[in-house]
Design a protein around this nucleic acid. Structure first.
Ligand SMILES: [Zn+2]
Ligand SMILES: [Zn+2]
Ligand SMILES: [Zn+2]
Ligand SMILES: [Zn+2]
Lengths: 142, 142
DNA sequence: AAGGGTTATGTTACATTATAACAGATTTCA
DNA sequence: TGAAATCTGTTATAATGTAACATAACCCTT
């Protein structure tokens, strides 16, 4: 089997619970909270919050899932990027949709700033709030 | 009295509770949670969470306080920048210190990316995790 | 000054999000 | 086999954040 890099272990190494959580997140384009996941997975034997949070911890560390701090929610990664790199989300205030963006330029823009104060950056997460295209149009039209 | 711009109303327009919360945040260089504030302000008559959260809402909207999503905590702004502009924090994983950075370059790096997908950005918040200078040195020395 | 709208306040109760702690099961590998 | 490590299920509880409502203060207009 092919893996994109050392940081993303093949999905065969995921445990049953981790796979269930990941699959559920992938089946949704919107972010889900831990308790959303708990509701959807109760019939599969996941009945208590720690089961969900533990699976999420692993998936986030591995890099196949991102946590959206502003929303207390989680979303599966669509970029196969490795850990340690920048992540950028565009979160629509109106419809709640979340789009993950390539953040290459962002890293190069930010790292000099943090280095200037002697800060050793490990991970960068940016969340841009605003209105997605459709919602913006709805607003100006209506 | 002088104000830096329309978005920052003079502090005379703050209510008693809002002023108390702001002063408490300013007296600390570390971020405080809503319940930290509640503890410190109980003797001043703020006894229930809504009193704190309402004051924080106003202060954040006005732009004199920022919320750190990753920490569920609040910190007073040291930049007198106006609302709607980018904010960038360097959060040390070891000691919890938070440094607010000028984010001019960040905006220009990110806005083209969001515009490319038709997203209308309103606010940008970046949180960089890592190690601050002192903690990084401690690690390599020890 | 009296009325009426708006905003701020205090309070209770509750909702949501997250973790501590522990015991049993499973895997891994020497 | 047996010890170490990991994953698991469970209970209970901590931490964070809001809904809802009644009162009080404030600002205008009449
Ligand atoms: Zn990603
Ligand atoms: Zn939208
Ligand atoms: Zn600021
Ligand atoms: Zn530090």
């Amino acid at each position: 089997m092919t893996v994109c890099c050392d940081h993303h272990p093949p999905e065969e190494t995921l445990t049953r619970n981790q796979r269930l959580v990941l699959e559920t997140l992938r089946s949704e384009d919107k972010p889900l909270t831990a308790y959303n996941l708990l509701d959807r997975l109760r019939d599969d034997g996941l009945r208590a919050p720690p089961q969900i949070y533990r699976a999420l911890d692993r998936l986030v560390n591995v890099g196949v899932v991102h946590r959206l701090d502003r929303l207390n929610a989680f979303i599966s990664c669509n970029h196969n990027h490795c850990g340690g790199q920048g992540v950028l989300f565009a979160v629509c205030d109106a419809c709640g949709s979340v789009e993950e963006l390539k953040a290459d330029t962002v890293e190069s823009a930010i790292l000099p700033t943090t280095e200037a104060i002697g800060f050793h950056a490990v991970q960068l997460v940016g969340e841009v709030r605003g209105l997605c295209g459709p919602c913006e149009r709805k607003k100006t039209d209506g």
